[in-house]
C-alpha cells in the first residue's frame, strides 16, 4: 500500500540505483561550453524535463499500468497494488494469463522506447540504469513481477523497471510518473553542482522553481499512459543524442552518461 514515505524513498537520490554516476547528458553539455552557470543549467533542465523527462515518465507510467491493470489511482489509494501480482499467486491460471499479457505489453514498450532513443549510447545507458534499478527492486520486492520484463541482453529500459518497481511499492501511476520526471532533473542538477561548483542552495532554488513543470510533466505522462504504446510521447532533443555520442568517445570522463 502506498504511503508518502514510500514515494519519498523511491524518489530519493540515495535509493541505490546508480543515479549518482549519471549526469543526464550534462557532463557533455558542460564540456561543449553550452552549460556554464545557473541560467544555462536551468535551461538545460527545462529542456531535458520536456523531452527525456516526459518520455521516461510516460513509459514508467505505462509499465506501471501494465503491472496494475484496470486499477485507477483512486482505487490504488484505497489499498490494492501491484504487489498483489506476486509470485505467490502466479500458479493461478488468471495470474498466468495476466503475466503473459504483462510480458507482451512490456516487450512492446521496450521496442517503442528503443524507437524513441535514436542514439545507441542512450539506449545502452537506459538499459544499464534499468539493470541497476532491477537489482535494487529484486532485492527489496522479491515477489514483484520483474520476471515479465523482456530479457534483453543489456537489461530492460530503466523506465520499464521503474514502473514495475513503483507498482511493487504500491505507488500510484501519477506518483510513478513523478518519480521518473523528478529523477531526470535532480540527477542532472546534482551533477551540475559537482561539475560546475555551483552554489548548492541556488541549485535547489532552481529545482524549486521547476517543481510545477515537473508535476505538469508527470501529469501529462500519467495521462498519456492510457494511449497505445505507439502513441506515447516521443519528444526528441537533437543535442541529447549528439552529446551522448560525443561523451561515449571520451577517454576520460567522470560520469557514465
Amino acid at each position: 500500500m502506498a504511503t508518502p514515505s514510500l514515494l519519498l524513498l523511491v524518489a530519493d537520490g540515495r535509493f541505490p540505483a546508480g543515479a549518482h554516476a549519471h549526469s543526464g547528458g550534462l557532463e557533455a553539455a558542460v564540456a561543449a561550453g553550452r552549460v556554464t552557470d545557473l541560467a544555462s543549467l536551468e535551461a538545460f533542465l527545462a529542456g531535458r524535463l520536456a523531452t527525456a523527462g516526459l518520455v521516461g515518465a510516460a513509459f514508467a507510467a505505462a509499465a506501471h499500468r501494465a503491472a496494475v491493470p484496470g486499477i485507477t489511482d483512486a482505487d490504488e489509494a484505497a489499498g490494492s497494488a501491484g504487489v498483489a501480482e506476486s509470485a505467490g499467486s502466479a500458479r493461478r491460471p488468471d495470474a498466468l494469463a495476466r503475466s503473459a499479457a504483462r510480458s507482451r505489453t512490456l516487450a512492446q514498450l521496450d521496442v517503442e522506447l528503443d524507437a524513441r532513443t535514436a542514439a545507441p549510447t542512450l539506449r545502452t545507458v537506459s538499459r544499464r540504469q534499468g539493470r541497476a534499478l532491477l537489482r535494487a527492486g529484486r532485492a527489496i520486492w522479491p515477489d514483484a513481477p520483474f520476471g515479465d520484463l523482456p530479457a534483453s541482453p543489456g537489461g530492460a529500459h530503466q523506465p520499464l523497471v521503474l514502473g514495475l518497481l513503483c507498482a511493487a511499492a504500491g505507488l500510484s501511476r501519477l506518483d510513478t510518473a513523478t518519480v521518473a520526471a523528478y529523477g531526470t532533473v535532480t540527477g542532472a542538477a546534482s551533477a551540475g553542482v559537482r561539475l560546475l561548483g555551483l552554489d548548492p542552495y541556488q541549485v535547489q532554488a532552481l529545482l524549486v522553481g521547476l517543481a510545477d513543470a515537473c508535476d505538469g510533466t508527470a501529469a501529462e505522462a500519467a495521462r498519456a499512459a492510457d494511449d497505445p504504446p505507439e502513441r506515447l510521447p516521443a519528444a526528441a532533443a537533437p543535442l541529447a543524442d549528439i552529446h551522448a555520442e560525443i561523451h561515449a568517445t571520451w577517454e576520460v570522463r567522470l560520469f557514465a552518461s
Partner: peptide, 8 residues
Amino acid sequence: PGWAGPAV
C-alpha cells in the same frame, strides 16, 4: 520549454 536551450 527549453527548446532553444543546451539540452535540445
